[in-house]
């Protein structure tokens, strides 16, 4: 058996793949957080709960209505996006003129309430989500087996991330978003309905979390805590990448997933802490994050 640094290539590739999968979710979630923070100046602690609700939406659609994975990919983000719009209009929009802390408290409280409601209804044990038929089986890459669904998750999340990046950094719509992130007053005085843009941006960010949730459903157990467990790491990813940087969020998401995977191979004891160690180092050297700007 071939080895690299005394590690069987198969184990190395396997952990790299797990790292890439985790990284795909880190990237999609931190992307949504970065977009929301950029325009709303709100640290959306409800993001994990919204991701969890996306997974639950997929599970409910399948088990109660018999609606499958592909439709869930569309329905769950749209429904949760609408839910986000409702939250923004009724609650968040009252907080923009106040200190950051209020937005953090509100979204954190909301996350606890939502998790509590789901736990009350469905218990804390996870619900399995049946893998769609099309994804049964694996590709034989020679040195390892690559399950079809995992390959799909990595490719799909890359497409989602790059499309979002392109829209924000390279289109007219994105230029409104970037400009309003810098100076909403001037953008609104040009005739752009900035409050509506803010509402839709929050809805989009929440929809992105829900989409990640649907994609996660067949891999992880669908449980009320699934978001809470993940979101802590995602916040570390956002801090490392730099608040408000779109490309930074994507690169750091995938990069840290892979680093975490490699740590599992080379020094398993540190695999749960490596991201936080990196966060501490980055904060000491570059307080604004790797790709962030001081603001």
């Amino acid at each position: 058996m071939t080895e690299i640094f005394g590690i069987p290539t198969q184990a190395l590739a396997g952990q790299l793949l797990i790292g890439l999968i985790n990284g795909a979710f880190y990237a999609m979630l931190s992307l949504g957080l970065a977009v929301i923070f950029g325009l709303l100046n709100i640290i959306n602690f409800t993001h994990g709960a919204q991701y969890m609700m996306g997974a639950f939406a997929a599970w409910l659609l399948l088990s109660k209505l018999g609606i499958g994975y592909w439709w869930s990919l569309l329905i769950a983000p749209v429904a949760l996006g609408a839910f986000g719009v409702l939250i923004e209009r009724t609650m968040l929009s009252r907080l923009y003129k106040l200190d950051h802390l209020y937005g953090l408290l509100l979204t954190f409280g909301l996350a606890l309430v939502l998790q509590g409601l789901f736990q009350n209804e469905y218990g804390s044990s996870g619900q399995p989500y049946r893998l769609p038929q099309e994804f049964a089986g694996a590709f034989d890459l020679g040195f390892m087996m690559l399950p079809r669904y995992r390959a799909w998750v990595v490719v799909a999340s890359l497409i989602v991330c790059l499309t979002t990046w392109y829209v924000i950094e390279r289109t007219k719509l994105g230029s409104y978003l970037r400009a309003a992130t810098e100076n909403p007053t001037v953008v609104q005085a040009f005739g752009v309905n900035v409050p509506r843009m803010i509402t839709l941006t929050y809805g989009f960010g929440v929809g992105l979390a829900a989409l990640a949730g649907v994609m996660a459903a067949p891999i992880y157990q669908v449980s009320p805590q699934m978001g809470a467990n993940l979101i802590i790491v995602v916040f570390a990813v956002v801090v490392i990448g730099g608040m408000g940087s779109i490309g930074g969020a994507i690169l750091t998401g995938f990069g840290l997933g892979v680093i975490e995977g490699l740590t599992k191979v080379f020094y398993p004891e540190a695999s749960n802490t490596v991201i936080f160690v990196i966060m501490v180092i980055v904060l000491l050297i570059r307080p604004a994050g790797l790709f962030g700007k001081e603001r």
Binding site: S175, R178, A179, T181, E182, N183, T185, V186, Q188, A189, F190, G191, V192, N193, V194, P195
Partner: peptide, 24 residues
């Protein structure tokens, strides 16, 4: 009126601090 509606009605503003966007 909100400022976006005022702008839509045909008034444009060049602010003292110029309001040029660094990320554009």
């Amino acid at each position: 009126m909100s400022s976006n509606r005022i702008a839509q009605s045909g008034i444009a503003w060049c602010p003292e601090e110029r309001g040029i966007f660094a990320s554009l």
